[in-house]
Amino acid sequence: MACRSPPSLIQAMQSLRLGPSVSCLAAQPAYLSRPRRQARSYMTDAVDGTETSEAADMSVMTDVNQVKAAPPIKLQEINPGNPNVQGLRIVPASPAYFSGNPRFIDQMLELETIQARYAALPTILADDAPRMAWLKIGQLREHLGEIIPVKKYKALLKILQRLNRIKPEMQPDEVRSTIETFVRPGNPFAVQHVPRPVDEHGRARGKGKRKESSAVVQLVEGEGEIIINGKSLVDVFHRVHDRESALWALRCTQRIDKYNAWITVRGGGLTGQAEAITLAMARALLLHEPGLKPILRKAGVVTVDARRVERKKPGRVKARKMPTWVKR
């Protein structure tokens, strides 16, 4: 472990050259605060600090094809008191320096150490572990500034998942903080969906989707008046079938004369719109009367129908249909 060994003068120099060291990287809270690409930032730093604007233009022209070398290290200037400068050898900060992706390897080694250290701690089932939004492979590549193959990324994830399975109340701070550096900012999965209650005007809002349609239903207590996109139910749905579908949640619970609905529905065709309203209406009704859930579930209006049109494939006439066979 290079970063754990006592830093020598040379290693300090080396870390100066490399910018923020690997150990610093692990301590940073969020990956977004880091520069996007390390290689590019060296270039711009050098240009901004030393060159004139003319030279900057030239370097912009040339930096696409040429990799500019780092400035030579002048050991004498940095440590003038040491007479034995010539005997010093430049050693990379990380033993993985000459591998393809040293930062990643350092991370892996650290994670493996942690995993070995806390292997004895009790774990929970994977299903019960808190759901974490790990950095995706692209984000991790950007985070480390290295090209990481998928296989290695999966290995990393495996260790992270194992660490995440440690019983939460016994999880050491070290594990927790290490894990957090690999989680997407904000941890989207940690955000629990909180259903909005019925508001102060007595409105419950429900959204639903079906096929290409999406519907929003505002449900208030009333006498069974329905307005869809500012029109009456009859003007929107000419088929009785569709009208029944739209009001099915209210009908099967015998609530049709207890509520008024103000509905906005967009996209798709008539059947899709009607069934999007079904779902939205059921969700809005559940906010008013959560006890109706078993009945609505049995009526089939709680389950989301996630089917969408299957895509057309190349070489086929439609999604599955093959072209007509021709002899020659």
Binding site: E225, I226, D235, V240, R243, I256, D257
Partner: peptide, 8 residues
């Protein structure tokens, strides 16, 4: 009421 609502 059901029929009244269904008939717009």
């Amino acid at each position: 009421s059901d029929k009244w609502s269904l008939s717009g």
